[in-house]
Design a binder for these strands. Structure first.
Lengths: 200, 200
DNA sequence: GCCTTGATTGAACGATCAATCAAGTCGCTT
DNA sequence: AAGCGACTTGATTGATCGTTCAATCAAGGC
């Protein structure tokens, strides 16, 4: 594995475990088994390592997140909840210390340079776009007048908020209740969609 | 104003502006016009300043947040949206750099000591408890079988997720769309509550 | 076999970090 | 007036931060 990749992987893990500011360059160096000179040969600085990590997350959303979450799931709406179930698994596996890598960075970095901010936004947009596609694929359960993109953003909101509360309270039940509320929302939307169709 | 209060206020502002890790003790000292010896006379360390800030936020939720947000608003459900409107104002006033003080800290601190974690959780709980009270006060618009506490947590989720996305995209519209979705959720709940009542 | 090139090494730099401490000031009690 | 404890002062500590750099190395072209 080449130096750059080793650095990005190590940094990705560390940023996720301890955040950007709490991760020192020497942390990255020791985990990736790279010397400081090599890191600064590949990257201009620590900030650029972060950019590399965000690019890797963006480019890996399908292979690392969506594809495994949707294995064996065909129904578009159930895909949404399968994705949420995957986050739930991460929460449980980390004893409720899990935080969404993007969400955590988005709130931690208070003065991100434009490139970093744009990459965070891009990561969110890719996520919601995938959800929006699911929504488009289930017209019989989502009323036609509902903004699919906005509803997808609402799903992201629920995930991020659920993760945040589960972590803060160290209790998955908080995540579960948010998902249950979202499920109720979709159930009510389905009822309305059926009604709309019958009326037409 | 006494030393302790000056420190807590300065630290509160700084933690909100730049986060906990990015705020140095000397940042706090210069803003509060206190010398390092005095700070360490009042607080054992930086971590304890954070505890002081979280306690102040917890104790000030009514005077600093709820009371001004609910001025002139009587309807319990509208109180919820009035609170969200207050967050919206904060977002706009800060050019979409606003982050919820608690939410930001909750995601930034990856290994909070138990006391800090408990205070973060307490801050969330107080917030949701206030919302839950509003929900209890509007039985005709919330179906009886809906868990009010869980729905209150869902409102918190929406706020935190909306703030996070508005900040990341530097665009209030993301917050507005989340609030719109939440409004739709409440509208559908109200319809269901009316139906339940008619059936009984 | 020499030279170029790009990657790697690890010691070192100045800055900044959280925290300490001896010395000093002030108000209150006796 | 003297003494005492609470609080303040600001220089100082050692550790750690992100970053730099001269030196070394391996591989390919000529």
């Amino acid at each position: 594995m080449d130096t750059r990749t080793r650095i990005v992987i190590a940094a990705m893990e560390l940023f996720w475990e301890k955040g950007f500011n709490s991760t020192s360059v020497s942390d990255i160096l020791s985990r990736s088994q790279v010397n400081s000179g090599s890191l600064y040969h590949v990257f201009p600085g620590k900030q650029d390592v972060l950019i590399g990590v965000l690019e890797a997350l963006r480019d890996g959303i399908w292979d690392m997140l969506l594809s495994p979450a949707w294995e064996g799931v065909d129904d578009p709406i159930e895909k949404i909840f399968a994705l949420l179930a995957r986050y739930r698994r991460s929460i449980v596996e980390t004893d409720c210390t899990y935080g969404c890598p993007i969400g955590s960075l988005a709130l931690e970095l208070h003065e991100p340079d434009p490139k970093v901010r744009a990459l965070l936004a891009q990561n969110f947009t890719n996520w919601t776009a995938a959800i929006a596609e699911c929504l488009e694929a289930a017209p019989e359960r989502v009323p036609a007048d509902v903004d699919k993109a906005a509803l997808a953003e609402f799903v992201l909101t629920a995930m991020e908020g659920g993760v945040m509360q589960a972590r803060t309270h160290r209790d998955v039940a908080y995540f579960d209740r948010v998902v249950a509320m979202l499920r109720a929302h979709f159930d009510m939307l389905a009822v309305k969609a059926r009604g709309d169709l019958a009326a037409a």
